[in-house]
């Protein structure tokens, strides 16, 4: 016993080493017992204070790796089944709608606009190395070079930001309603121009929020989520953080008792279809479902299996007609 104990802190004599080795070798079980005794010893005599080990925050080099990989592998390995969300690299110049010099009122820095068309998500790397994933139907405007004092971008729609750390030059997301000011953090912003609400979901780090009149609203910490109303200027933070708010960037659609109308709005943007609700009572029906890179057809099939909803494509609205936007009637199965 004493020899075992001594071996944990080191400094066994040669004789004692031999003794210990013999004991360990004599029975397989002794090896496990030795490990157990060692864990007890380390628990009471840790070589450094356990509290010094910070397990709350992954180091930046690992977080970067996660972001890069989640985009890269999706494209190569799962391309064949990604109907939901094609993550394209901006090199596919199709996505760059306008790359024009605009007579800017600030100075003559060229603004770029990247737009993810309906049905496609796209990944953008900004001039400072920050990574942005744009959800379908969203657009982002940013200067080709950030100036020395700040990094401002304009968002319409939804995007996930992974901001390169640089405390001296705040990173600002303008949404036409709420400005989000960050230094080095990850967060998701949902700010569709036709909608009243702006939702900010924090993943890591900290941001500050400012109202249109530059009034400071509040700060947000990791794993906070809040919804801001453009009209009333009120803030609702009852939702709470969940991976589902950002899962779209990984091609995962997660609905947790969400009403049908908001589900359809999401699906419509993602698959470039227009849903026509034939029965208003359906709008508030709630659904609980998770879809991982599934086709629109199979999603609709699953939705209609779980409730009295029926989907029917409006004839003559396939590809080619009416800008290629498909229209789908949403009906109540009992009535029609």
């Amino acid at each position: 016993m004493a020899v075992i104990r001594k071996s944990f802190s080191g400094g066994l004599s040669a004789d004692e080493e031999i003794l210990l080795e013999e004991w360990l070798g004599s029975d397989e079980e002794n090896g496990r017992e030795y490990s157990f005794l060692k864990s007890l010893y380390m628990w009471k005599n840790p070589p450094f204070a356990p509290d010094e080990v910070d397990d709350g925050r992954m180091p930046w080099r690992i977080r970067r790796l996660l972001l890069k990989n989640s985009i890269g592998t999706n494209v190569f390995v799962r391309a064949y089944r990604i109907v939901a969300c094609l993550l394209l690299i901006p090199l596919a110049g199709v996505l760059v709608w306008a790359l024009t010099d605009r007579p800017s009122d600030q100075d003559s820095v060229a603004m770029q606009e990247v737009r993810a068309p309906f049905g496609i998500c796209s990944a953008v790397t900004l001039p400072d190395g920050s990574e942005v994933v744009l959800n379908a139907g969203s657009s982002l405007r940013f200067p080709s070079v950030f100036d020395g004092t700040s990094r401002a971008v304009e968002l319409s729609g939804e995007a996930y930001f992974e901001v390169e750390s640089c405390p001296d030059r705040p990173f600002i997301v303008r949404t036409g309603g709420l400005d989000i000011v960050a230094t080095g953090t990850s967060f998701n912003v949902e700010a569709y121009s036709g909608e009243d609400m702006i939702a900010v979901t924090m993943v890591e780090g900290e941001v500050g929020l400012y109202a249109p009149d530059d009034r400071f609203v509040r700060t947000m910490m990791a794993e906070d989520r809040l919804v801001y109303s453009r009209n009333t200027g009120t803030v609702d933070e009852t939702a709470g953080y969940s991976y589902r708010y950002i899962s779209w960037k990984d091609g995962v659609l997660a609905f947790r008792n969400d009403p049908l109308d908001s589900i359809l709005a999401r699906l419509g943007r993602l698959y470039n279809v227009e849903f026509i609700l034939m029965d208003e009572s359906l709008a508030h029906k709630q659904f609980y479902a998770t879809f991982n890179n599934e086709s629109l057809e199979s999603i609709l099939k699953l939705l209609s299996m779980s409730d009295n909803v029926r989907f029917e494509q409006v004839s003559g609205t396939g590809a080619g007609s009416d800008h290629g936007i498909r229209k789908i009637y949403v009906m109540n199965r009992e009535k029609h």
């Binding site: 080493e17 080795e21 090896g31 496990r32 490990s35 157990f36 864990s39 380390m42 840790p46």
Partner: peptide, 23 residues
Amino acid sequence: DYISRTCSMYADIEGYILYSDLE
């Protein structure tokens, strides 16, 4: 040398209980 010899040969980490579990 000694540690790596004995540990790799005999000490079976299956017996080790992690800090937070002990805690």
